[in-house]
Design a protein around this nucleic acid. Structure first.
Length: 589
DNA sequence: GCCGTTTTCGGCCCGACTGTTTTCAGTCG
């Protein structure tokens, strides 16, 4: 059962409570919604957290929801939920999937028109709306009836259900909108915020904030964006549009004097903001995107906040980096002045997962650029060192002697490159497959000439946790094996990673001087941020590598750094922040 | 149902927008 599915079930519980008795269950409704948010946003699978007994680490999951989740994972159902869902037609929950339908609207329509069939409820309702039968109901009218038809049509055509974007894609999309908005003379500052600013590994929709003294003009300009499909909302200070691609873009405006409050509000996460506002309330402050209200004699007094730093400082907090605003302890850490000094892109001194086009005749893909071209790019990035780590030569197509001969030629090439490039150090590495039996795909004796090797899984993913963990530890135990590349094997939007016993892997890395990779490839971003955080807590060292197959891809480093930051990693946790000499010493250990 | 500068009891974020309404309910983020 996926996190998305589990979150949906919890939201259904909240919706069912709303129908049963909104007043009586008011706080249960909030609690279930909050837990659903946390589960939807969690990069760890609930299934795994349940097995590991770590469900309580999710904000909003307490003893009661925890035991319900355990029951759900174990048996596929929950007795208590069945009681909450009793007497509510299944079709009700199907209607909730349509944007704009909340529990009140959905239930009223299901009851009024006796829509009991979950398979046809949506098309049935569309017909009823098209026949003009809804406008007559109390609380509805012509406009809401037309909106129902539009929403269902959007839903049926798959709009809004498009899968989440990779970070670079979302960045490009946001940049186009930022450039467009900046064309308005009334735009003072324009920033993409929301999950994009927090650098979440996948992005749902685009949020943009504009600082302006003339919000009306900005809104007018925004809703005239040439690539919009239609306007979803348009008010005095905010607006939303749907792009032809099915992506939603939300815009918020604020005056320059209060822009700090908007930056804070619109960056989120939602759970971070809720927690921050509860924290503030106890200090007699009330927070919003407009500023900070202070309890004073004769009511509340609002103060405008121009910068985000000031916003946090007034609450007695240090500014919190956007990447860790997920309500996982950052507010408490800030309050105790115990925030981590997160690693920065500038701390990175080299990239050790680089595939050049050297004709190594590999089992997997070869790079597109020469070693010289990759080095040129590394120099541009002001790196101190670069590590070449092509895949090992294909084993099925070569004899041992042929492999040895290819690798010798490659070593000569690297030696030649070393002597002609004095301004950057070159490290001789190789990416080697770990076979399903735990052996490395090429034999021991040819590995001696390398400074180190990266090991990784590229086949036989479908195996259980114990077997895969054993397989990986077996591969990593080779004395030259120093880095486990893209450790979970996940491909975002495509396949889940294989399950691993990370406690064992962490132990092994620490005692045997091995490291885990944070792979920057946009659909990998592997290790996932939540596991990075566990690694940091356990004192396990990591590399951030781009896995570049072309020179331009070395720019993807910032996405891996973002993953590290989201995992609360500091410079000391990441080995490719070391000087060349220190790094080489680590490789020799 | 969750959770903690003080609180293991007694609180629980805040506001924009829309549509159907003469003052508000529902939804969303």
């Amino acid at each position: 059962m996926t996190n998305h599915k589990i979150a949906q079930i919890l939201r259904n519980v909240a919706s069912a409570y709303t129908i049963k008795n909104q007043t009586k269950f008011r706080f249960q409704i909030i609690a279930y919604q909050r837990a659903a948010d946390a589960i939807e946003n969690s990069t760890a699978e609930i299934k795994d957290l349940t097995k590991e007994g770590k469900l309580e680490t999710l904000p909003g999951v307490g003893p009661s929801i925890k035991s319900h989740l355990e029951e759900l994972i174990k048996t596929g159902g929950v007795k208590h939920f069945n009681w909450v869902f009793k007497d509510i037609p299944k079709s009700f929950f199907f209607l909730l999937e349509i944007p704009g339908f909340g529990p009140k609207t959905a239930y009223k329509l299901v009851k009024e028109f006796n829509l009991k069939n979950p398979d046809t409820v949506i098309s049935d309702l569309k017909k009823i709306a098209e026949q003009g039968k809804i406008a007559a109901l109390e609380g509805f009218g012509d406009k809401s009836q037309a909106e129902i038809v539009t929403a269902i049509k959007d839903y049926e055509s798959g709009k809004g259900k498009t899968s989440r974007m990779t970070l670079p894609y979302a960045y490009e999309l946001a940049q186009k909108l930022v450039d467009y908005l900046k064309k308005s003379k009334d735009a003072i500052e324009v920033y993409p915020l929301g999950s994009l600013r927090r650098m979440v590994s996948t992005i749902g929709d685009i949020d943009i904030a504009v600082s302006t003294k003339n919000p009306k003009e900005i809104i007018k300009h925004f809703v005239s964006y040439p690539y919009k499909e239609r306007i979803l909302e348009q008010g005095e200070a905010t607006a939303s549009i749907l792009l032809s691609s099915g992506r939603q873009v939300d815009l918020m405006t604020q005056t320059p004097e209060s822009f700090g409050s908007l930056l804070q509000h619109f960056t989120g996460s939602k759970n971070h903001n809720v927690h921050l506002r509860e924290f503030a309330l106890k200090k007699n402050f009330s927070l919003s995107e407009h500023g900070i209200k202070r309890k004073a004699k004769g009511g509340w007094k609002t103060e405008e906040i121009a910068t985000e730093e000031k916003f946090y400082n007034i609450l007695g907090l240090k500014w919190i980096p956007p990447e860790i605003r997920e309500d996982t302890g950052e507010i408490e850490a800030s309050h105790r002045n115990k925030l981590p000094t997160l690693i920065e892109l500038n701390d990175v001194k080299g990239d050790l997962h680089i595939h050049s086009n050297f004709p190594i005749e590999p089992s997997h893909d070869l790079g597109n650029n020469s070693m010289e071209e990759m080095i040129k790019k590394a120099v541009e990035l002001r790196y101190d060192y670069i590590g070449f780590s092509e895949h090992n030569p294909s084993v099925s197509k070569h004899t041992d002697d042929q492999i040895r001969s290819i690798l010798e030629r490659r070593k000569e090439k690297i030696e030649q490159i070393k002597s002609s490039n004095k301004n950057i150090r070159v490290i001789n590495l190789l990416e080697v497959d770990i076979l399903s039996n735990g052996n490395l795909s090429i034999s021991d004796n040819v590995l001696d000439s390398f400074d180190g090797i990266l090991v990784s899984i590229h086949s036989a993913f479908n195996t259980n946790k114990q077997t895969m963990t054993k397989r990986i530890l077996s591969g990593l135990s080779h004395p030259k094996a120093k880095i486990l590349a893209h450790p979970t094997g996940r491909l975002l939007g495509n396949r889940f990673g294989y399950e691993l016993d990370f406690e064992k892997i962490f132990d092994f890395c620490k005692t045997k001087n091995k490291a885990l990779e944070i792979n920057c490839w946009p659909t990998r971003l592997d290790l996932p941020d939540i596991i990075v955080r566990e690694a940091v807590k356990n004192g396990v060292k990591m590399f951030i590598n781009t896995d570049s197959h072309a020179a331009w891809q070395m720019d993807l480093m910032r996405y891996g750094v973002a993953v590290a930051r989201r995992g609360w990693a500091e410079k000391k946790d990441i080995l490719n922040t070391l000087s060349y000499d220190d790094l080489f010493r680590w490789f020799s250990k």
